[in-house]
Design a binder for these strands. Structure first.
Lengths: 201, 201
DNA sequence: GCAGTCATCTAACAAACGTTAGATAGATTT
DNA sequence: AAATCTATCTAACGTTTGTTAGATGACTGC
């Protein structure tokens, strides 16, 4: 049995509760007493684990990005050499959606409340965001190198378009009632071929 | 000169200020004193114009949806008879993005803070949301009737995909520095033909 | 010039906020 | 058994919250 200290256990429970409450009611809409209540301790005790409310939300943000980043990076690295653009992007899309929706309390902090946080908190998490964007740009450019990507499509534009579409699934998709894999197949198909398929001349 | 009552003028100013502050700091992160300060009156005076803070945010939500709904509906109705799917969807996408970004303080309330609002406020605005979704489904189905839409693509899935991608532009696109029309052309191209264009057999 | 409506103000309310200091009980180490 | 460390609690702090009641001065219609 691995020795998990009581503090670490409590800390994790606090973060889980905080992430879910931030998602539902926003950063300012959740008080430390709300979090403490549901995590089974008193508001003052939170300060044994975190220096401030800002530090709690910053930790939630970091965890959310890290989980998705690792999942996508690992899956793409595990592909056989020289995958087709379809295979490469379908894999990245599936992994993003799976991780994103599996840890949706944490990831939704990044989507829903990032823009409402104190500037210092935002600033601290920007590097992690930019690294994840860079990962996607690299994936898209790798697909482009295989030759079948349309030249008229800009990498950053496509990345913003695709991540926007995927991240919005947080607002309506319920993994308990729908099949994430099927969603991923449909979104990959749309991202790669669009509503119509072949463009006109 | 049309006689705009002083009350109506103040009311509009309050809504403008409230929308922008909600966007930046969330619903609970903005106090009535914050709004009153920037609108040039005292917190208590807000109650001459609105019954509660909830009513202010509900009004902001309504305005945001109504502006975009009307813009898209009007532009689609003004198209010549029997437009091609490309023309129809490109027009709808352009209008959505133009209105969405032009009134971004109001529309971002719908995207950013809707999920964090008290359930009664959410419930009151659901019908307007559903009507806008129905408008898009009608547009997509009309394109489908023209025959060139791929059968494998589901209407609701495409609508969620596309609206998600477009609405995310709120988080990064600055109309003062970029060309909304160009963004619309690129997004329409991606939505219709994807990254690759023609799907494989 | 008077009455009434309009739009705003001041001042207060109880409740809730993030945060801190110091006490406390159980576990671990000496 | 004593001393230390760990994790939590209680109780309070000053500030801010949404909201209300009643006063106030400026316009409007007569």
């Amino acid at each position: 049995m691995t020795a998990i200290s009581k503090a670490e256990d409590t800390r994790q429970r606090v973060l889980d509760v905080a992430a879910r409450q931030f998602r539902d009611r926003g950063y300012a809409g959740v008080s430390l007493r709300d979090i403490a209540d549901e995590a089974g301790l008193k508001a003052g005790s939170l300060y044994y684990h975190f220096r401030s409310k800002d530090e709690i939300v910053a930790t939630v943000l970091d965890i959310g990005i890290a989980l998705v980043h690792e999942a996508v990076e690992r899956a793409v690295a595990a592909l056989p050499q020289g995958p087709s653009p379809e295979r490469l992007l379908t894999t990245a899309i599936r992994q993003h959606l799976q991780a994103f929706l599996a840890y949706s309390d944490y990831t939704s902090a990044n989507v829903r409340i990032f823009g409402q946080l104190p500037p210092e908190v935002r600033r601290a998490n920007l590097p992690a965001r930019q690294r994840y964007e860079a990962l996607w740009d690299a994936i898209i450019d790798r697909a482009r190198a295989a030759g079948t990507v349309r030249n008229s499509v800009d990498t950053a534009t496509f990345r913003l378009f695709l991540l926007g579409a995927m991240n919005a699934s947080l607002e309506w998709f319920d993994p308990a009632r729908g099949d994430v894999d099927r969603l991923a197949r449909r979104y990959a198909d749309l991202a790669l071929h669009g509503l119509l398929g072949r463009p006109e001349a």
